[in-house]
Design a protein around this nucleic acid. Structure first.
Length: 407
RNA sequence: GGAGAGAUUCCCGAGUGGUCAAAGGGGGCAGACUGUAAAUCUGUUGGCUCAGCCUUCGAAGGUUCAAAUCCUUCUCUCUCCA
């Protein structure tokens, strides 16, 4: 098999391919152009979105040319694949803003140079489409019977599928066709939920242009307990540091299940395969592997400086040395402590708890610590005497720490 | 356009005049067990000046000593028919 495809396979980034043999020999002959799409439905990507972009980088490394397609046009509709409900329609302004934000998140990761890696936005060709022309030229190639048989729509057949969403597949197929025409793009990669859309695009290219194109999907990333990673999940881990701080980001990876470590090392880092396997060997401490994973991914997304800080902060918080300065820190006025800081207020102000009621619960359930000491009395106040050199460590539960700093 | 059904706390989903801050499940949080893991068990899960009070059951009015529960109007969703 072609080495690039081989790499994707051993990295767990290959779920299905429309014609693996043919694609492999095509890629053997020389660099090809591929694309991956991403709809700007929010102003930040989350880690689940990154899987295709890891594959993107692998393919770049093998000399292929990638296009990251921002779905400024398709996002006006919303992809129904795998969703239970219609997505809220966003304003064009929001979509433009989101697309710009996402592009700037991808830039450092993919290093768009305009030659080997570039972006495009399908708004460029979708926004001003003429409906009648589109139906004549593109719509006639789609069989509704066939579309209805796609797994992607099954779920929505239960809850209802609007016509606008039903068109999504045509638009995505049209994207593929456009990229094929404009840039000779012959491969679309994406999550496995995109299979139907990808196949449809491939077929459209064959019908309209008589061209050969391919599709390749990655497994949908779930955690070993079956939860969807990122995507619809609530506690999605975003790339935007103002939503998910680098420290939180690091901790997410540090705390994944044992069963996921190898898979995630392969998927979300560029460590050599052998090294990934060695890290999880039975004679090695699995926690070291998690730490390495956390460090590597954080470094890829937030940069080495932030990764070092997060690692150091985590060590300080969990008692493995490290640097306290790198722990999540909150500044509070010393005078508040001198006056006696009610614990509940303190926990809220430190951001460990969203409300005083929750702070109260935390204390009552024995999850609160002030300066390494369990704090039992919800009514008591924290005085300045507990400050150690203007500093105080607060703990909520076992994993959430904040270092309070007073001037 | 016609006929029905529905909108409940983060999500799903009970509740049909007071005993409802609202069953149950999911998720979250905390405790025990551990390895900053998983699984399991336990507790907890609107807010506050917390044995009390305040705000929540699509929106606005109304009936009542008392409404998530009854009436009116409105908004939205779904199903069936045309």
């Amino acid at each position: 098999m072609n080495p690039a495809l081989e790499t994707l396979k051993e990295r767990g980034l290959l779920q299905q391919c429309t014609d693996l043999d043919a694609l492999s020999s095509l890629m053997d002959k020389g660099p090809i152009t591929f694309y991956v799409g991403c709809d700007p439905t929010f102003h930040s990507l989350h880690i689940g979105h990154m899987v295709p972009f890891f594959a993107f980088r692998h393919l770049l490394k093998f000399g292929h040319t990638g296009i990251a397609l921002l779905g400024g046009g398709t996002a006006r509709i919303g992809d129904p694949s795998g969703k239970t409900e219609m997505r809220k329609l966003l304003s064009y302004e929001d979509l433009d803003r989101n697309a710009a934000a996402i592009e700037s998140q991808l830039k450092p990761f993919l290093g768009f140079d305009g030659v080997h890696a570039r972006t495009d936005n399908n708004k460029n060709w979708l926004a001003d489409l003429n409906y009648i022309d589109f139906l004549r030229e593109i719509g006639r190639h789609f069989s509704v019977n066939r579309m209805l048989s796609f797994e992607a729509y099954k779920m929505r057949m239960e809850t209802g599928l609007s016509f606008i969403e039903f068109n999504y597949q045509l638009l995505q197929s049209f994207d593929f066709l456009e990229l094929f025409r404009r840039h000779g793009c012959k491969l679309q990669i994406g999550g496995d939920d995109q299979w139907g859309n990808i196949v449809a695009g491939m077929e459209l290219i064959r019908r309209v242009e008589g061209g050969e194109a391919y599709g390749l999907t990655f497994p949908l990333v779930t955690t070993s307990d079956g939860k969807k990673m990122g995507k619809t999940e609530k506690g999605a881990l975003f790339l935007d540091p103002s939503i998910s701080s680098p420290y939180e980001f690091f901790q997410y990876w540090r705390n994944i299940s044992d069963a996921d470590v190898l898979r995630f090392l392969l998927m979300f880092t560029f460590l050599p395969t052998d090294e990934c396997r060695a890290l999880v060997a039975p004679d090695r401490n699995i926690n070291d592997a998690k730490e390495r994973l956390a460090y590597e991914v954080t470094s890829l997304i937030h940069g080495k400086v932030e990764a070092d800080k997060a690692l150091s902060g985590a060590k300080a918080a969990f008692g493995g040395g490290g640097d306290k300065n790198a722990m999540p820190t909150v500044r509070l006025a010393r005078s508040l402590f001198e006056a006696g800081y009610p614990v509940l207020d303190l926990f809220v102000d430190a951001g460990l708890t969203p409300s005083k009621s929750e702070a109260r619960r935390l204390v009552q359930q024995g999850g609160a610590s002030v300066g390494e000491q369990a704090w039992k009395d919800e009514k008591a106040s924290v005085g300045a005497d507990l400050l150690d050199d203007g500093e105080l460590i607060l703990k909520a539960g076992k994993k959430r720490f904040v270092r309070v700093l007073c001037d």
